[in-house]
Design a protein around this nucleic acid. Structure first.
Lengths: 207, 207
DNA sequence: ACCGTAACACTAACGGTTAGTGTTTAGTAA
DNA sequence: TTACTAAACACTAACCGTTAGTGTTACGGT
């Protein structure tokens, strides 16, 4: 970790990764997800199959190349808050932005791709759960929040649900507001000016 | 559909299905999910691989043989309510029962199996989403509820989240109560004695 | 007794994924 | 420079879940 992002090697590696991802997305959009095999992607990107799998854990991961950003943005929205800035509005703002980003015209073909492939749908669901868990961790760790671990995990799930439900709704932005109205209410009843952190359980999250 | 469950054929089919499921579960518990192949299960149950797949859609489905019950019980809890019996307590009762059922000592090895296999975890997540969708449909259809479709879908998700989170918690029963306290609050803000069904979107659920 | 159909069987393959084994390339230190 | 190390990459061959294609039986309704 002496020099973060220099080095020809790292640049080449990133370039290879990007070339694979771009090629994959292009082929998927051209011919459909199921009609394109891993071997097709590999040969079109001019890499070996094993190389492809050293960059991406699965075929589905090729489509969700930038999912780390999503996770990052949510946890940062919690961490970067000004001290005692209310949590829920901050999260709502972030979800609004993310939903807007996904419902942009340019992103539509990709989401059509996802919606039409059960494998991709399942993968995305699983991703969301990971995001909820890392958001939960951020909430539990936030020094200004006094809620129980269960309450934090619950709110984390609810927030991710809001994203997922809003994306499917006819009017995504309005849906975000409607759902966050509910989330706000759920959050408020967990901190009725009580003394310390209450709760029904310890701090275990899945490993 | 003259006679529902008579007929030797149907009995034989059910017996075959059960034999496959039992054999599979036994082998999985003995040797671990990943260490047992479909071909192992099939030959041990003395059926062809194709027969196995005509009874179960996937390897994971062998483990969640009775998942239809779960879905059924939740939607029934909504439908079978006495007229104007409050929704949330009815759902809480049902989730309490389901969580208790899952955290019984006898069920522990099966859940260990699931927790240790990523494939099974993913499958269960996907199942839960299906359950949430069918619960949402039941809520939208309930004649005594005046909430928007978005609110119904949201509550359905939250209820399923409650189940999932409680199962992971140290004290599952207490977690159910804590989470339902939040759900109750979220539900209440959707019906502040308003006139008709409000909402931000139509009634589309995924096909 | 007869026919339609649903359950079951078998072979062979397809497609994602991985193990095993090398070969090249780039950063590093003598 | 030279030599060393490690990482990226390549190739073959397989494993395993799953499905298509094709029959074969046996039950149930008529």
């Amino acid at each position: 970790m002496t020099v973060p992002t220099t080095g020809r090697r790292e640049r080449k590696k990133a370039a290879t990764r990007q070339k694979i991802a771009d090629t994959a997305l292009r082929l998927f959009l051209e011919r459909g997800y199921d009609a394109v095999g891993i071997r097709d992607v590999a040969s079109e990107a001019d890499v070996a199959v094993t190389t492809l799998f050293s960059h991406f854990a699965s075929k589905e991961a090729l489509v969700f190349e930038r999912d780390g950003d999503f996770e990052q943005r949510l946890t940062q929205a919690v961490i970067d808050r000004a001290q005692h800035e209310p949590l829920i509005p901050a999260l709502r703002r972030e979800i609004h932005a993310l939903v807007r980003h996904c419902t942009t015209n340019g992103a539509a073909p990709i989401w059509r791709l996802i919606d039409e492939s059960p494998a991709l749908r399942e993968y995305e669901e699983s991703m969301r759960l990971r995001h909820a868990e890392s958001l939960a961790t951020a909430l539990v760790a936030a020094p200004d929040l006094q809620q129980s671990a269960t309450a934090c995990r619950t709110i984390a799930r609810f927030v991710i649900d809001a994203y997922s439900l809003a994306r499917e709704a006819v009017d995504p932005q309005a849906a975000v507001d409607e759902i966050f109205h509910m989330i706000e209410a759920a959050w408020k009843v967990t901190c009725p000016s009580a003394s310390g952190r209450r709760g029904s359980d310890g701090s275990r999250l899945r490993a």
